[in-house]
Design a protein around this nucleic acid. Structure first.
Lengths: 151, 151
DNA sequence: CCTGAAATCCCCCTGTA
DNA sequence: TACAGGGGGATTTCAGG
């Protein structure tokens, strides 16, 4: 939790609207000069609030037509078991996201594959053979919509 | 699916490594001049492969200490029911991601809240009152790790 | 079509008040 | 904080492959 004023929040909102926004444009929106805006962005980066910029790729246009979320329950849950699982899951190229969660499942994996048969290959040869895997539940992604943090 | 050569893929890999990378830096990596690299990036953007750049914010440092994934099963699933649900879910500020999925659940929502009691408020007053909501399952996020698309 | 080189524009970034 | 200058990236133009 870091002290932010209204202008910082306005800058963050602007950056959420457009991750490639320039300091000069943001400055006009928030009523600040370009250098002042740039220094605030720098401060937000150094403070860790702004962790970086990520490109958004269109998986479908790259030939990955199938995205599946897997809920995974581990059979054994010691510290070593968690580390083994995470390391092995990270070695699967099709795994885009590894989330350690608390609830009905222990992990959630986001898996991309070229098509359903490609996904079946990944599921059977890679996911089901991960160390400690117990129950696995799958949800195929149909569509998704991102929304901004209300700050 | 768009035709990409090895250089395009190398550029995309470089951009996944650093979303703020400059055309000149990328050019050095892929063995191309700065204008040629810049034109390829532009082409990837116009072709929709590169959908944009997004800033990564640290939710914890902004005071959102709790992230929960909800799996939601709808009681009724007509076209109108889906649209009503999506519209109402999008009106909840704490909902960061709305995923329409196929499987055990119909929707997955990513919800951020300031703390557990704030999450309880969102869950009881906003989520449970969404139109058509049936079963709800929750997973609290402990940690997550993003990985790059293998292209 | 693609490329690289050069030239221009404009923004970032920094020093300074 | 704003202002001003140098440096460098973004963008266009041009010529060659």
């Amino acid at each position: 939790m870091i002290a932010l004023d209204d202008i910082d929040r306005a800058i963050l909102r602007g950056l959420q609207h457009n991750g490639a926004a320039r300091a000069s444009d943001l400055g006009k929106k928030v009523g600040l000069s370009q250098p002042a805006t740039w220094r605030r962005i720098k401060r937000l980066e150094e403070g860790g609030v702004l962790r970086g910029r990520r490109v958004v790729l269109d998986a479908k246009k790259l030939g990955f037509d199938v995205t599946v979320f897997l809920g995974i329950k581990l059979a054994t849950k010691g510290r070593v078991a968690l580390e083994d699982f995470e390391r092995a899951a990270a070695a699967i190229p099709e795994v885009q996201l590894i989330q350690h969660v608390l609830g009905l499942y222990d992990y959630r994996l986001k898996v991309v594959a070229r098509d359903i048969s490609d996904f079946e290959r990944v599921l059977r040869r890679r996911v089901m053979t991960l160390p400690g895997v117990g129950d696995v539940e799958a949800n195929v992604l149909l569509s998704d919509e991102h929304r901004k943090l209300a700050i």
